[in-house]
Amino acid sequence: MIRKRLIVLFLAPASLLYGGLFLLPTLSTFYFSLFNWSGFGQDMTFVGLNNYVRLFNDTVFWLSLRNTLAILFVGGFFVFGLAFLYTVLITSGIWGKKFFRLVFFLPNVVSVVALAGMWAYIYNPRSGLINTTLSTIGLDSMAKTLWTSPNNIFWAMLAALVWVFTGFFLILLMAGVDKIPTDTYEAADLEGASLWQKFWFITVPMLWDVMTISFVIWMINAIKMFEFPYAFGFLQVPQQLYTLGIYLYIMGFGQRDPIYQLGYATAIGVVMLVLTFVLIVVMRRLLRREQLEF
């Protein structure tokens, strides 16, 4: 029905721009992952798959991968748990829905460095918000907790991260809920359905599409996660906060340490790409099957 000419005409601009300025250039750099190359000059040594072997034996790489997966799954659990909870609460008929929606989204428009500065104040061991509050209400032993000590800093960062992203996905989920006809809920109310039952038997199935998109967006963002944990480290990102994105950046481009191992960094990039792709495919499979049930 759609003629070939139109197909070509409609696809050409996007394909050219995307292929020429993004896909081919980046895929071509993946070729560097087979070399030892500093990025300076022409001095490249072919090392085959050595960079990948090295990744496999690199403690810091595994640490970064673990952190990335922790953000993806643990962070994702809380982001979506809270986003769902607040979607249900805000759409339960309380007054000021639009206002709350605006406020929840706000962290997404503030520069991450400013957010990191604020959270550093919140977590500060002595003068910080949490610990001063705790000691004011008499919880002196808890007020001694060092939220940003090396054993806690990753989780402290993740909590802040969840706060930012919950608002983003809340917007998407609320948009989905608004689309559900109100009489569905009214009918459920008449039958005496609880809030939980309404959520599970009406909201979730009706939200399936928006959830799929949200999950995919979260996954891609989580695997590439860079900005927020990076800003959380101000001068020097502590290793406890390394994600794959940060490690790639530090090995190939970054900060002030003259590491410059572009070949190795691109190998990390390849791993990230493969990881994303596999997860997208798996997600699509899982969600497609579910979709058939409804």
Binding site: Y18, T29, I223, F253, G269, F277
Partner: peptide, 28 residues
């Protein structure tokens, strides 16, 4: 539209979502 290679082309576009942005620094 129905045409050959549609699935592949779609996947080619989708794969771009997973490319880490720093990979573009040098070639760009």
């Amino acid at each position: 539209a129905r045409f050959r290679g549609r699935e592949t082309l779609t996947n080619l576009f989708v794969i771009g979502m997973g490319i880490p942005i720093p990979m573009l620094f040098i070639p760009i």
